[in-house]
Design a binder for these strands. Structure first.
Lengths: 134, 134
DNA sequence: AAGTTTGTACGAAAAAAGTCGTAGTAAATA
DNA sequence: TATTTACTACGACTTTTTTCGTACAAACTT
């Protein structure tokens, strides 16, 4: 059981780095930096410093065995998404998940397969709620 | 037709203020400040300055007729939500609207009525997409 | 009319986030 | 072994965002 007190609020850059770590697994500073540079030129020490800060915040762990440390996300993508989603929902959609969903679906082209998946989820949610009504 | 070039990225505090303006319509600095204070103690001139900055950024307009100016949101809630949603989707969910929707629905209790509304939307989306396939 | 209250304007401090240079050391290589 | 390369540590500078103090003016109050 993680003992993560704080509501988990990575900054924009921290989130970018987390994405890289989630996608690549344990990575050296250099690798993270190279990934970052695909999007936006970033100095090596900048990346290093960020990772060090994230380490202090317990957003990442690191393996110091070899000379170039291996950094790894200490939070899962799902829990981070959930946390950010809740915050976003409150600040931007005044807490209305419905409205967010409607806009997300409405203004983006969603494939029929995806729509179908959502339909399944809806059914499941409905079943669950009626089951708990007993 | 608005000539809004920038992708519309209000900061957190700016968004709070926009929310207040959307809910209350044209408002004086004082009113905005009082609303803010319900959540978080904020000095009067702090609010004033923010509104002035937002005015320069064209996030709000103002009526200077009477001594206490009336500020009004210059962007709609919907377009702002849409813009922030797109950004959020990209940075946090790597662009997958589906995943966001699933998490939004899954981890929050959504009422049967709301689920039903979404179901209607799904149907509409489906109809539209098959219609445009002609 | 003098004084108090309620405004705006605006510079500048404080806080938060991101960037980078320099020092020092281990490892590779010439 | 001397040199160059690849790392970490860390302080400090920059930029962005937020907060606030002070100055000054209009409009009420007495």
């Amino acid at each position: 059981m993680p003992e993560n007190k704080a509501p988990l609020k990575p900054t924009d850059t921290e989130l970018e780095i987390l994405q890289i770590l989630w996608q690549n697994g344990p990575s050296t500073v250099r690798l993270v930096n190279e990934e970052q540079n695909k999007t936006k030129e970033t100095g090596y020490t900048t990346t290093l410093k960020l990772l060090q800060i994230m380490f202090e915040k317990n957003l990442v762990t690191r393996d110091e065995e070899s000379r170039s440390h291996l950094y790894q996300a200490a939070v899962t993508e799902e829990e981070t998404q959930q946390s950010l989603l809740n915050r976003f929902l409150d600040t931007t959609f005044r807490g209305s998940a419905m409205k967010l969903v409607m806009q997300a679906l409405g203004n983006r082209k969603t494939s029929p397969e995806e729509l179908d998946q959502i339909r399944h989820l809806l059914k499941k949610l409905e079943d669950e709620s009626s089951a708990s009504d007993s």
